[in-house]
Deep mutational scan, measured.
Amino acid sequence: MGFKLLSKLLVYLTASIMAIASPLAFSVDSSGEYPTVSEIPVGEVRLYQIADGVWSHIATQSFDGAVYPSNGLIVRDGDELLLIDTAWGAKNTAALLAEIEKQIGLPVTRAVSTHFHDDRVGGVDVLRAAGVATYASPSTRRLAEVEGNEIPTHSLEGLSSSGDAVRFGPVELFYPGAAHSTDNLIVYVPSASVLYGGCAIYELSRTSAGNVADADLAEWPTSIERIQQHYPEAQFVIPGHGLPGGLDLLKHTTNVVKAHTNRSVVE
């Protein structure tokens, strides 16, 4: 069995187990497998329904001669939608809004960016022009300005110390501490036991640490421990890039980060 097929099978099995364990909360999309990078042309966006009122959005972007996937989250909030992270750029984010209108038909009224990198804030200006209120932590807003990236308009308070959590509509926002970046936030959907790890969490097929220019490698494993301790009931975990899975993604990420750190020390 090929690795790609095995990865998709694991996603399907995880979703099936969740649907059985929580039949009222989960209505997993039966329309197909989780979209992969090879299936999404740059400039297009796919939506994948995880649970009743919960979707991931998947886009792709060219970077350094390669094409990478990027995940975000959409959560229903009454007759409105909360968006977590842009679709990595203005063109993708405009396509995301169009796809949401086509498939869901509810307005996106608020959006949260989970850290300051372009795959999370690139497209904020498109959201703002569409009347979406954009939010991020003060740290993310400051770092985005320093980096020359787009800056969300509103500040999220109460997320300055490791372990801080605040309720934001249908989700809980959690600051686990520094990891992929010093400002990275985690998003949890309690009604569906869905954990969105953003770039602080890796997919299972990833074996290298990737972009760690703004990471705190020493603190990252401790931050992941905080996530595990705060959300032990999480059933569906979405990484910032690639295929979702279960809580095993947290341990896998820790292993990859520690291996990278150990290699760096040896070198």
Rank of each mutant, 00 (worst) to 15 (best):
M1P: 02
M1Y: 05
G2P: 10
G2T: 05
K4L: 05
K4H: 06
L5G: 07
L9I: 15
L9F: 09
L13C: 13
T14L: 08
S16C: 15
S16H: 15
I20K: 15
A21Y: 15
A21P: 06
P23T: 10
A25L: 11
S27R: 14
S27Y: 10
S31D: 09
Y34E: 15
V37H: 15
S38H: 10
I40F: 15
P41S: 12
E44I: 07
E44Q: 10
L47G: 03
Y48F: 11
Q49W: 09
Q49G: 10
W55Q: 00
A59M: 03
S62R: 09
F63S: 10
D64S: 12
G65W: 06
Y68A: 15
P69M: 15
P69F: 15
P69K: 15
N71V: 02
N71F: 00
I74G: 02
V75N: 01
R76E: 09
G78H: 09
D79Y: 09
E80A: 10
E80S: 10
L81Q: 00
D85C: 00
K91R: 15
N92I: 03
T93P: 01
A94F: 13
A94L: 14
A95H: 14
L96R: 01
L97I: 07
A98Y: 10
E99D: 11
E99T: 12
E99K: 13
E101D: 13
Q103L: 14
P107C: 05
V108K: 02
V108I: 09
V108W: 03
A111M: 10
T114W: 00
T114K: 03
F116H: 03
D118P: 06
R120K: 02
V126P: 02
V126N: 05
R128E: 10
G131S: 09
V132N: 01
T134S: 08
R141V: 08
R141Y: 04
R141W: 03
R142G: 12
A144Y: 05
A144I: 08
E147S: 12
G148R: 10
P152C: 00
P152V: 02
H154G: 10
G158Y: 08
L159E: 03
S160A: 14
A165R: 14
A165C: 06
F168R: 02
E172S: 05
E172V: 06
L173H: 06
F174V: 02
G177D: 05
A179S: 06
H180N: 03
D183K: 01
L185C: 04
I186S: 04
I186N: 04
I186T: 14
P190A: 14
S191L: 09
S191K: 11
S191T: 11
V194F: 04
V194G: 01
L195F: 06
G197E: 02
I201W: 03
I201H: 05
T207N: 15
T207G: 13
T207S: 13
S208Y: 08
A209V: 09
G210Y: 02
N211E: 14
D214Q: 07
A215H: 05
A215Y: 04
W220M: 01
P221N: 11
P221S: 09
P221C: 05
T222Y: 12
R226C: 01
I227F: 05
Q228A: 11
Y231H: 05
P232E: 08
A234M: 07
Q235T: 12
L243I: 13
P244Y: 11
T254C: 06
V257S: 02
V257F: 07
N262P: 10
S264Q: 13
V265C: 04
V266H: 12
